[in-house]
Simulated assay, not measured.
Amino acid sequence: MPFPDEAADALVVVEYRPSWPTDFSRLASVLRRALGDLAVAVDHVGSTSVPGLAAKDCVDVQVRVDSLDEPRLVPPLTAIGFRLRPEPWNHCEVSAGHHCPKLVFAPRPGARRCNVHLREDGRPNARYALLFRDYLRASSTAREAWGAFKQRLALSVPARLADYGQMEGAERWAAETGWEAATGWEAR
Protein backbone atom coordinates (compact mmCIF):
# COMPACT_ATOMS: atom_id res chain seq x y z
CA MET A 1 0.00 0.00 0.00
CA PRO A 2 1.78 3.17 -1.14
CA PHE A 3 1.69 6.47 0.67
CA PRO A 4 -1.17 8.73 -0.49
CA ASP A 5 1.16 11.00 -2.46
CA GLU A 6 2.62 8.13 -4.51
CA ALA A 7 1.39 7.67 -8.04
CA ALA A 8 -1.23 5.03 -8.71
CA ASP A 9 0.58 4.12 -11.93
CA ALA A 10 3.50 2.56 -10.03
CA LEU A 11 3.34 -0.52 -12.27
CA VAL A 12 4.28 1.31 -15.47
CA VAL A 13 7.39 -0.27 -16.99
CA VAL A 14 9.56 1.95 -19.20
CA GLU A 15 12.58 1.30 -21.39
CA TYR A 16 16.01 1.53 -19.72
CA ARG A 17 17.08 5.08 -18.98
CA PRO A 18 20.80 5.97 -19.00
CA SER A 19 20.12 8.48 -16.19
CA TRP A 20 19.38 5.75 -13.63
CA PRO A 21 23.02 5.15 -12.57
CA THR A 22 23.45 8.89 -11.99
CA ASP A 23 20.18 9.01 -10.04
CA PHE A 24 21.50 6.14 -7.90
CA SER A 25 24.84 7.88 -7.33
CA ARG A 26 23.06 10.99 -6.04
CA LEU A 27 20.88 8.93 -3.70
CA ALA A 28 23.88 6.89 -2.53
CA SER A 29 25.79 10.07 -1.65
CA VAL A 30 22.87 11.39 0.40
CA LEU A 31 22.49 8.06 2.20
CA ARG A 32 26.22 7.76 2.92
CA ARG A 33 26.30 11.25 4.43
CA ALA A 34 23.22 10.55 6.54
CA LEU A 35 24.24 7.10 7.79
CA GLY A 36 28.03 7.37 7.91
CA ASP A 37 29.63 4.29 9.40
CA LEU A 38 26.25 2.67 10.11
CA ALA A 39 26.20 1.61 6.44
CA VAL A 40 28.49 -1.25 5.46
CA ALA A 41 27.72 -0.72 1.74
CA VAL A 42 25.30 1.11 -0.53
CA ASP A 43 24.33 -0.86 -3.64
CA HIS A 44 22.32 -0.06 -6.74
CA VAL A 45 19.95 -3.03 -7.02
CA GLY A 46 16.74 -3.85 -8.81
CA SER A 47 15.96 -3.45 -12.47
CA THR A 48 17.23 0.13 -12.80
CA SER A 49 20.71 -1.21 -11.95
CA VAL A 50 20.81 -3.44 -15.06
CA PRO A 51 21.82 -1.65 -18.28
CA GLY A 52 19.34 -2.30 -21.06
CA LEU A 53 16.59 -3.66 -18.80
CA ALA A 54 13.10 -2.16 -18.85
CA ALA A 55 11.92 -1.17 -15.36
CA LYS A 56 9.61 0.94 -13.26
CA ASP A 57 11.12 4.42 -12.98
CA CYS A 58 11.89 3.84 -9.31
CA VAL A 59 15.51 3.44 -8.23
CA ASP A 60 16.11 0.64 -5.74
CA VAL A 61 18.96 1.16 -3.30
CA GLN A 62 20.17 -1.46 -0.87
CA VAL A 63 21.95 -0.24 2.24
CA ARG A 64 23.74 -3.08 3.98
CA VAL A 65 24.09 -2.65 7.73
CA ASP A 66 25.49 -4.79 10.54
CA SER A 67 22.16 -4.98 12.38
CA LEU A 68 18.66 -3.66 11.86
CA ASP A 69 18.29 -3.57 15.64
CA GLU A 70 20.62 -0.56 15.71
CA PRO A 71 18.46 2.28 17.13
CA ARG A 72 20.52 4.93 15.30
CA LEU A 73 19.43 3.74 11.81
CA VAL A 74 15.99 5.29 11.39
CA PRO A 75 16.46 8.86 12.77
CA PRO A 76 19.05 10.02 10.18
CA LEU A 77 16.84 8.82 7.33
CA THR A 78 13.66 10.39 8.64
CA ALA A 79 15.61 13.61 9.33
CA ILE A 80 16.33 13.93 5.60
CA GLY A 81 12.74 13.17 4.60
CA PHE A 82 12.63 9.41 4.06
CA ARG A 83 9.52 7.63 5.35
CA LEU A 84 9.59 4.14 6.80
CA ARG A 85 7.13 1.99 4.88
CA PRO A 86 4.62 0.49 7.34
CA GLU A 87 3.48 -2.60 5.40
CA PRO A 88 4.48 -5.96 6.96
CA TRP A 89 6.09 -7.16 3.71
CA ASN A 90 8.46 -4.19 3.93
CA HIS A 91 9.81 -5.46 7.25
CA CYS A 92 10.46 -9.13 6.48
CA GLU A 93 11.09 -11.08 3.29
CA VAL A 94 11.81 -14.70 2.50
CA SER A 95 15.03 -15.42 0.61
CA ALA A 96 16.36 -18.93 0.03
CA GLY A 97 13.78 -20.21 2.51
CA HIS A 98 14.93 -17.86 5.29
CA HIS A 99 12.81 -15.13 6.85
CA CYS A 100 15.03 -12.07 6.73
CA PRO A 101 14.38 -8.72 8.39
CA LYS A 102 14.52 -5.52 6.37
CA LEU A 103 13.37 -1.92 6.51
CA VAL A 104 12.17 -0.08 3.41
CA PHE A 105 11.98 3.70 3.12
CA ALA A 106 10.17 5.86 0.59
CA PRO A 107 11.34 9.36 -0.34
CA ARG A 108 9.68 12.53 0.84
CA PRO A 109 6.75 13.73 -1.31
CA GLY A 110 7.95 15.23 -4.59
CA ALA A 111 11.43 13.67 -4.42
CA ARG A 112 12.96 11.22 -6.92
CA ARG A 113 11.00 7.94 -6.79
CA CYS A 114 13.05 5.31 -5.01
CA ASN A 115 12.93 2.54 -2.47
CA VAL A 116 15.72 2.36 0.08
CA HIS A 117 16.04 -1.20 1.38
CA LEU A 118 18.01 -1.64 4.60
CA ARG A 119 19.20 -5.23 4.94
CA GLU A 120 21.67 -6.93 7.23
CA ASP A 121 25.00 -7.60 5.51
CA GLY A 122 25.56 -11.28 4.85
CA ARG A 123 21.88 -12.28 5.09
CA PRO A 124 20.28 -14.22 2.20
CA ASN A 125 18.07 -11.27 1.19
CA ALA A 126 21.07 -8.94 0.81
CA ARG A 127 22.90 -11.59 -1.19
CA TYR A 128 19.85 -12.19 -3.41
CA ALA A 129 19.61 -8.52 -4.41
CA LEU A 130 23.25 -8.52 -5.53
CA LEU A 131 23.13 -11.96 -7.15
CA PHE A 132 20.04 -11.26 -9.21
CA ARG A 133 21.43 -7.89 -10.37
CA ASP A 134 24.76 -9.37 -11.40
CA TYR A 135 23.12 -12.38 -13.06
CA LEU A 136 20.92 -10.13 -15.20
CA ARG A 137 23.91 -7.95 -16.06
CA ALA A 138 25.88 -11.03 -17.17
CA SER A 139 23.19 -12.99 -19.02
CA SER A 140 21.55 -11.30 -21.99
CA THR A 141 19.12 -14.22 -22.33
CA ALA A 142 17.95 -13.90 -18.72
CA ARG A 143 17.87 -10.09 -18.97
CA GLU A 144 15.71 -10.13 -22.12
CA ALA A 145 13.36 -12.76 -20.66
CA TRP A 146 13.06 -10.86 -17.38
CA GLY A 147 12.36 -7.57 -19.17
CA ALA A 148 9.69 -9.15 -21.36
CA PHE A 149 8.11 -10.79 -18.32
CA LYS A 150 8.03 -7.50 -16.40
CA GLN A 151 6.37 -5.74 -19.31
CA ARG A 152 3.70 -8.45 -19.56
CA LEU A 153 3.23 -8.44 -15.81
CA ALA A 154 2.74 -4.68 -15.72
CA LEU A 155 -0.09 -5.11 -18.20
CA SER A 156 -1.84 -7.76 -16.14
CA VAL A 157 -1.70 -8.20 -12.37
CA PRO A 158 0.95 -7.83 -9.66
CA ALA A 159 2.81 -10.97 -8.65
CA ARG A 160 5.17 -11.93 -5.89
CA LEU A 161 8.90 -11.95 -6.68
CA ALA A 162 9.05 -15.60 -5.60
CA ASP A 163 6.72 -16.42 -8.49
CA TYR A 164 9.06 -14.97 -11.10
CA GLY A 165 11.07 -18.21 -11.32
CA GLN A 166 14.45 -16.62 -12.03
CA MET A 167 16.41 -17.64 -8.94
CA GLU A 168 17.25 -21.13 -10.18
CA GLY A 169 19.03 -19.63 -13.20
CA ALA A 170 20.77 -17.01 -11.07
CA GLU A 171 22.00 -19.61 -8.57
CA ARG A 172 23.25 -21.87 -11.38
CA TRP A 173 25.10 -18.90 -12.91
CA ALA A 174 26.66 -18.03 -9.53
CA ALA A 175 27.95 -21.59 -9.11
CA GLU A 176 29.32 -21.74 -12.66
CA THR A 177 31.13 -18.40 -12.47
CA GLY A 178 32.21 -18.37 -8.82
CA TRP A 179 30.17 -15.18 -8.22
CA GLU A 180 30.33 -13.71 -4.71
CA ALA A 181 28.59 -10.65 -3.27
CA ALA A 182 30.78 -7.56 -3.30
CA THR A 183 31.92 -6.19 0.03
CA GLY A 184 32.44 -2.65 1.30
CA TRP A 185 31.22 0.62 -0.16
CA GLU A 186 29.91 0.14 -3.64
CA ALA A 187 28.40 2.60 -6.08
CA ARG A 188 27.54 0.69 -9.18
Score class of each variant (00 low, 15 high):
M1F: 08
P2D: 03
P4T: 02
P4C: 02
A7D: 04
A8Y: 03
A8H: 03
A8W: 08
A10C: 08
V12E: 13
V13N: 02
E15N: 03
R17H: 13
R17N: 15
S19M: 05
P21A: 02
T22L: 10
S25T: 04
R26F: 06
L27I: 05
A28P: 05
A28F: 06
S29F: 03
S29V: 01
R33K: 13
L35N: 11
D37C: 03
L38S: 11
A39R: 04
A39P: 08
A39L: 10
A41D: 04
A41E: 10
A41S: 15
V42F: 03
V45E: 03
S47R: 11
G52R: 10
A55K: 13
D57G: 09
V59R: 05
V61D: 08
V61L: 07
V63G: 11
D66N: 06
D69M: 04
E70L: 02
E70C: 13
P71F: 06
P71N: 03
R72T: 14
L73V: 06
P76F: 04
L77G: 08
T78M: 15
I80A: 11
I80H: 06
G81E: 07
F82Y: 15
R83V: 15
R83Q: 14
P86M: 13
P88R: 14
H91F: 09
C92I: 15
C92P: 04
E93C: 14
V94R: 14
S95Q: 02
H98T: 12
H98E: 15
H99K: 07
H99Q: 12
C100H: 07
P101Y: 05
L103A: 12
V104S: 04
V104W: 03
P107M: 12
P107R: 11
P109K: 10
P109I: 06
P109V: 05
A111K: 10
R112H: 11
R113F: 09
R113H: 06
N115D: 15
N115G: 05
V116R: 01
R119A: 15
E120A: 12
D121I: 01
G122Q: 12
P124Y: 00
A126W: 00
R127W: 12
L131K: 08
F132T: 07
R133N: 00
R133Q: 03
R133L: 10
Y135C: 08
L136D: 11
R137E: 09
A138P: 07
A138D: 08
S139L: 06
S140V: 08
T141I: 05
T141M: 04
A142M: 02
A145W: 04
W146C: 12
A148W: 00
F149A: 12
F149R: 11
K150C: 01
Q151M: 15
Q151F: 00
R152Y: 05
L153A: 08
L153R: 11
S156I: 03
P158L: 02
L161W: 04
L161M: 10
L161K: 10
A162C: 08
A162D: 11
D163L: 06
Y164A: 15
G165P: 05
G165D: 13
G165K: 07
E168C: 01
E171C: 03
R172Q: 14
A174W: 04
A174V: 12
A175Y: 01
A175Q: 14
E176S: 09
T177N: 11
T177H: 12
G178V: 04
G178T: 03
G184D: 12
G184K: 04
G184Y: 01
E186G: 05
E186D: 14
A187W: 00
